[in-house]
Amino acid sequence: MRGVLRLFAPRSYMDRQRRAGLLFVLPALVYFGLVFLVPLVESVVGSFHRIVPGGESRFVGLRLYQRVFTDSTFWQAVANTVSLLLMSVPVTVTLALAVALGLHRLRSVMARSAWAAMYFLPFSVSLVAAALIWQWMYDPLYGFLNHLLGLAGLPPLPWLQSLELVRPSLAIVNVWVRLGFDTVIFLAALQAIPADYYEAASIDGASARQALLRVTLPLLNPQIVMVTILELIFNFKMFATVYATTQGGPAGASQTVIMLLYDTAFKFFRLGDASVMAVFVFASLLLVTLVQWRLFRREVEY
């Protein structure tokens, strides 16, 4: 307590240093407090309250949770989100690893960064632009993909307009957007692995495949875990791609959790229900992250 008081009336050099440090971080603390911590607490509180006509809010316990969690629309959205994420996360991470390994083998630094930039390009544009570009690629009548199918003598596909294909189609957009991002992380990690390791492996008679499985992949473990977590989070929060294209359709087949949260809060103004979903999203992502770190993280030292 005395320490805190002395921040306001510094006596020694050390006191002044402490005060200076605190003042430097103060703007950030205040900002994050106001923009994230306070609203997060309000979200949690709001999920236990109902606004009654007249603007008064009344404590209703778990009533809102009960309502949201017994709503089939909600679980449909959760199922859609999980199915989207199960399609795109493994594909993105695996492809990114493959691309990074390929780029890593290129000798010329110029070529490597040029190709890497090409893969990275989709990540740098907005999800809205990405989604619209793909919606045009997927166009049932004049889209390029159906043109390709036609050239191969196959019938056209309805892509975003079909109950079965809408989620795989959106997953492809996600993979396209995120591939370069993951690749860049893997590539940097690959370049940090000392060449001695591979020399040692080859002296011991390891084949290229063994070197990959026994040296490269284990050393990349932290990045693989991190990238997988980031992809899970990104895909779980999927919104802009869906909003710009299908708006959750057809027949709710691409309705995601965040789409539902958005509609509930800002279309139907059921803020309490939206708060329940907000808490659900927060809790799920926290859980996923913690479980992944606990289970898969192994420290790697070079």
Binding site: A28, L29, F32, V35, F36, L37, V38, P39, L40, E42, S43, G46, I233, K237, F239, I258, L261, A265, F266, L271, A274, S275, A278, V279, V281, F282, L285, L286, T289
Partner: peptide, 20 residues
């Protein structure tokens, strides 16, 4: 606490933020 905010998805705070 600040790093912990990385764990808070923006969508979880958006309703109160909108009200503010």
């Amino acid at each position: 606490a600040i790093v912990g905010i990385l764990m808070v998805p923006f969508q979880s705070v958006v309703v109160p933020l909108y009200l503010w």
